[in-house]
Amino acid sequence: MTDVTLSPDKPTAAVRRPTGASIGPHWANALFVAPYLVFYVVLLVYPLFKGIWMSMLESDMFDNTSKFAGLANYYRLFNDKIFIGTIWNTTWFVAMTVPVFVTIGLLLALALNRSDRTSATLRATFFGTSVLSVTIVTIVWKMMYMPGNGAIAGVMRYFGWEPLDFITSATLALPAIAVTTVWWIIGLPMMLFLAALQQIPGELYEAAALDNAGRWRSFWSITLPSIRRTMLVVVIYEIVAQFQLFGQAWLLTKGGPNNASRPIVLFIYEQGFRSWNLGYAAAASEVLFLIMAIAAVAQFFASRKRVEG
């Protein structure tokens, strides 16, 4: 890595330019971006195309006689109820979590946008869980959800209720994972909103106060419009992040029951490393890529419109 960092030095020496940098284009300037581009091409672009190629092979983890299969893997994917189910699950998960990240994140930010000690402690509390790794988060929540050992079940039994079957119910499993996820990483949207709120000039509120505008009205007419950009950033970021759901589902429910909580990435993992169907797994990854690309393009146009309008 040391070598890589030194390379941008070379152009200045190589082209003998003791009189300093010139304004305007020069090929040597490309050396600033070259180190990153090497990583980008080798570790992202190349595997992306290799993956696309693999998705058209009938290829297997330990068998080197891969055969070209055209679009057979894709054809199989879209006739695979389990895979279609994972697309539905993942989308549903995104639909459940993203609005919550936005609303709860914003509510917390509004409530904690103060400089006293209590608010600082509370901010630390809500952001603190984000630093835990997914394995620890799922251990914590298993201890909450489990019908026998779990804390929630214990509380419910204490009140004489039948404990809810979070992990074994096809309707509750994915929401349970969503709750865990929100608990885990609500801190980031909260912080982003806090930062945005602190950018709003105080004069705006002062003016509103003179107009005798209530809290509610100043929220609608001042706060909300001012943080529109941040809101968009949060929405895009969370959509991209939650589409890649893996660890929580794998460690909490293993995708069950009845495939109700199996996300796309888990499907890829299982096809690749359990069933050894590399071509099939690669095809599923390309579908994930396609969905994300569509989401990204849609977001791009949406953001343009809104910023303009």
Binding site: P25, H26, N29, V33, L48, L288
Partner: peptide
């Protein structure tokens, strides 16, 4: 630092934002 083709290159890099890690993990 300007150089020829920089802006196209930048767009190509930005496209990389749409590639999730999981989509290339098998390869």
């Amino acid at each position: 630092a300007e150089f020829k083709g920089r802006d196209i290159l930048f767009v190509l890099v930005l496209l990389g934002l749409a590639v999730p890690e999981q989509a290339v993990i098998i390869a």
